[in-house]
Design a protein around this nucleic acid. Structure first.
Lengths: 199, 199, 199, 199
DNA sequence: CATGAATGAGGGTTCATTCAT
DNA sequence: CATGAATGAACCCTCATTCAT
């Protein structure tokens, strides 16, 4: 693939991300995406062949970007607790970015029930996220700061469930200022889940 | 409202629930709903004025039904722990019913970002759910089985986040047999969240 | 099928016939057909489900109509020669009608190469036409006016080849007044093909 | 015109012939033609200015080639009967080549009704074909093997009608092995048309 | 000369909504 | 009340044509 093609695809992908986040999955049209990218409708087809393809690549692209960002974040720290906090900082990045990502991601989750391609891509994202969770929990166990008897993978899944559930709740509650609240609550709950009793 | 009208609306509502759960929010047409209800397309319009209205009432109807069912479940028990288990039993009612409800509910959550009416209805559902959570947690604190220092509403919100996050995760993982796993994990995690350390 | 539906389909079919004869197979749009029928574009889909269906039914309809007309024509006469002339009268019905039918029919023949449905319908038309030819030739043999030694089906096929070839030639030559010439030449040639030498 | 240009145009013309014979007149795109020729879309436009032009030149080219081939064929023989058989051998050259040529030619005939350029080119082809017929028939008359009283041009036209009608019929009947049957039947019918009675 | 990226008009099709019966 | 025929706007997609590189 040539460089120009790469640039164009990225440009259109970003436009699609903007368009879906603004209009929602089923209201988005190729025209919207094209307008957002500042190109003609034909160009979008030229590079992606179909609307379905754009959306597939969009889901793959944004979940991979999120994952890589989270991965980088935890790699910068050494201890389990620090990594956990860095992870949550990465996840709860900012109200604006969370709103954008989760509104689009929620659309895809809804579509996934009935679309095996979306399911597969999301499954991959889940496994990546669980992987981060496992890494942190295992380290914490080794360090002796997390309980030994709990199942690592199970807790990793619960961690992600809590995170997704929290951000979806936050998104729907429509109050920007609750972002910090959900972030703090999430961290506390996860620590409760994993740590020895602090008493 | 006459009795016949009531009957008709209920019939159409059920048809809409079936149709949306089978086809997904954006693939559903009035024709599908009408077919599923065994009536003509005109009837659907006659009683609901617009497709949007059907879907609005559908969201309201199913969230209220779920809430009432959960409320009844916890009312049958006396202690916090029993109520909590009854609540989770009601929430994780069965793979079939969870699949149906959560696939439709997820569609609505996705739509809610950009539709104030959906947001309002879902907000109401959230508050109802938090109410249940609060009731259980407060009772548990009174009984002395749950930690006193934690914030009740916050924990109620985290409970619901964990539940929704778990069922969404389960839905997308596409493995029916994980239903029990997510239910058990959810209960354990919530207990961890609320109880004194068991050591 | 209700009467009204029948009427509508006929109306649209006629409009499609007009539109294809005027614009040609690949230039015809649903809008043209709808305009010609005086209805909206949606109606055409309502009754035929797809453009392809309209055209399939059109081919079937016009070939069947032509066949029935030809059949009626020869049934009104008793002798082979009279039947043959009636057949040719029916085939060379008028410049206007021949132009219309053959321009549309030629379009379908061209499409048939690569469309099994069209092929099947045309094959049926061919067999009907050969049937007429066979009936006339067999009668002529019985009457003793046509040569005995020739193969009936082969001659029936050649008769139709001559007719189609003539009308296609006439159509392309673009001179209305040659219609009579081709009709006469066709009759003479067919008689030459079938009869004993007149010397 | 430079040599390179000539080569390029021939190359594209052949590609167009292949493409139209495979895909049909209305399904062919410039991309198909370009792909088939192993060049870019731009080249096709550069040498022909428009798609319409390619097709025009294609019709002219293939009809001229067929005509020259038929002409050469009859020039190799001396007597009318021999020339006639050579002509039919040239026309019914092979199932493969006939299928290719007639499927494309039929497409053009269908288009001709409404396109004066195609009509003109085909008219020229007709006149060339009639010329061959006339040459053969006149020779036969001179030789005394064909009937004197018949009109030469008329019979030449009927000959061509029979040939075209036969090959179109053969094409649509979709049975390769009938090729020989139609060839034989055509020769016999033409001889019947032209010769003195054999009794 | 040659490429293929870009355009945008126009196609078939879907479907919520309307309304005559 | 109930039906479903009719409408037409809006969608995705195709492709001849143009033109910068």
């Amino acid at each position: 693939m040539k460089k120009k093609e790469e640039v164009r695809k990225t440009q259109i992908m970003k436009a699609a991300y903007n368009a879906v986040s603004e209009l929602g999955y089923d209201n988005v049209t190729l025209q919207h995406i094209a307008d957002n990218a500042g190109v003609s409708k034909g160009v979008v087809h030229y590079y992606f062949n179909s609307k379905q393809n754009i959306l597939l690549e969009l889901l793959e692209s944004i979940t991979n970007q999120i994952y890589r960002y989270e991965l980088e974040a935890i790699d910068k720290h050494q201890t389990a607790i620090e990594k956990l906090k860095a992870y949550l900082d990465a996840v709860f990045i900012s109200p604006q970015k969370n709103r954008k990502f989760y509104s689009v991601y929620l659309d895809f989750l809804a579509q996934a029930n009935g679309n095996e391609d979306y399911k597969r891509i999301n499954m991959n994202f889940y496994e990546n996220c669980w992987g981060i969770g496992k890494e942190i929990i295992e380290l914490g166990k080794k360090e002796g700061v997390f309980r030994q008897e709990s199942d690592t993978l199970t807790n990793a899944k619960m961690m992600r469930a809590l995170i997704d559930g929290s951000l979806i709740q936050w998104l729907t509650c429509n109050e920007e200022e609750l972002h910090q609240f959900y972030k703090d609550s999430c961290i506390n709950s996860i620590l409760n889940l994993l740590q020895y009793s602090k008493e």
